[in-house]
């Protein structure tokens, strides 16, 4: 396997706050690595330390301890920075500029000549769906439009590593789908994507591997399939039948699972496979119709809650 694109080793950040210089540990000695070409999700509830970690990697915050190597170089190395594209969380840009002017400025920093800047700006604004508004001052842009400018500016230098801090935050479902498509497109082009999110559905759909950070500590790193337990947690049985059969089965399997009614029919949720076998046998014998039997395994959300130790919304700071 080729060298890791991003290697983080015992990275730690403490903040001193207030008059008494109270010490708060935001990131507590985390270590992980991101391999070339993978989409790596950095997951955690709000206030877990995702943004602080990303800011340390991008040279915005100085780590208290530990080190990181990005594209084989230390944090802040100019040659490495040239190969990184970064989208900050809730990005703010110079609102007196248009998106085109902003991308030209970024292009100048990358040392592109005028023709290359114009070509790149037009191409990127087209790609993120902002071609129609590219000459309007950014003060008139919606949050979704600013997020698109943020993505465009991150891609000006055609980076090998794209770091996105909460790229779907505040976007409507269509905007979120477009960002997902863009990340998939980057993956298809062989780029490495390291992105943070607290929206588990996005990570579920996109990530090859994830790291879960909770209260500054890294809880899990690995392939999604490995982190998620393969064990079947419950089986859902959907069926239809007469009222008498419903009453009979509800009383016979009262302790073995949960019974409820949905628009599609009767629903029985069993915790064990043996119960499902007995239930289906009695259902068929009683003249009922079986619609579906669906095993339910652990979802990323359940893993997240299991690792976090409580519900995500209870941890928000």
């Amino acid at each position: 396997m080729s060298a890791a694109v991003l290697e983080v080793e015992d990275l730690r950040k403490e903040f001193l706050s207030g008059f008494l210089r109270r010490r708060t540990v935001a990131v507590d000695g985390i270590s992980f690595s991101v391999e070339p070409g993978e989409v790596f999700g950095f997951l955690g509830p709000n206030g877990a330390g995702k943004t602080t970690t990303m800011k340390m990697l991008m040279g915005l915050i100085h780590p208290t301890a530990g080190k990181a190597r990005i594209l084989g170089a230390g944090i802040g190395d100019l040659a490495a920075k040239r190969r990184i594209g970064y989208l900050p969380e809730n990005p703010y840009f110079y609102d007196y500029l248009s998106a085109t002017e902003y991308l030209h400025m970024v292009g100048r920093i990358y040392g592109l000549d005028r023709a290359a800047r114009t070509r790149r700006a037009d191409e990127l604004l087209e790609r993120v769906g902002l071609a129609m508004a590219k000459r309007r001052p950014m003060r008139s842009y919606s949050k979704g439009m600013l997020q698109r400018v943020g993505l465009a500016q991150a891609l000006v230098g055609d980076p090998d590593l794209v770091v996105l801090d909460e790229p779907m935050s505040g976007l409507d479902p269509i905007g979120r789908r477009e960002i997902r498509e863009l990340i998939e497109d980057l993956r298809a082009r062989g780029k490495t994507v390291f992105f943070s999110t607290h929206i588990l559905a996005d990570a579920n759909l996109l990530c090859d591997r994830v790291a879960i950070i909770v209260k500054g500590k890294l809880r899990d790193v690995g392939l999604l399939g490995e982190l998620l337990s393969p064990k079947v947690l419950q089986v859902e049985v959907l069926w239809q039948g007469p009222e008498a059969l419903r009453e009979e089965l509800t009383s016979a399997f009262a302790e073995a699972g949960e019974h409820s009614r949905s628009s599609e029919g009767e629903l029985f949720i069993a915790r064990e496979q043996a119960t499902v076998d007995r239930f289906v046998a009695e259902l068929v014998a009683g003249g009922g119709q079986l619609s579906s039997v669906t095993p339910r395994r652990e979802t990323l959300e359940q893993l997240f809650v299991r690792d976090a130790g409580s519900r995500p919304e209870e941890q928000r700071s």
Binding site: G59, L60, A79, P88, P91, Y92, F93, I109, Y110
Partner: peptide, 9 residues
């Protein structure tokens, strides 16, 4: 925040 991570000191 968007400028400091760019390739400049």
């Amino acid at each position: 925040y968007a400028i400091v991570p760019k390739p400049l000191h």
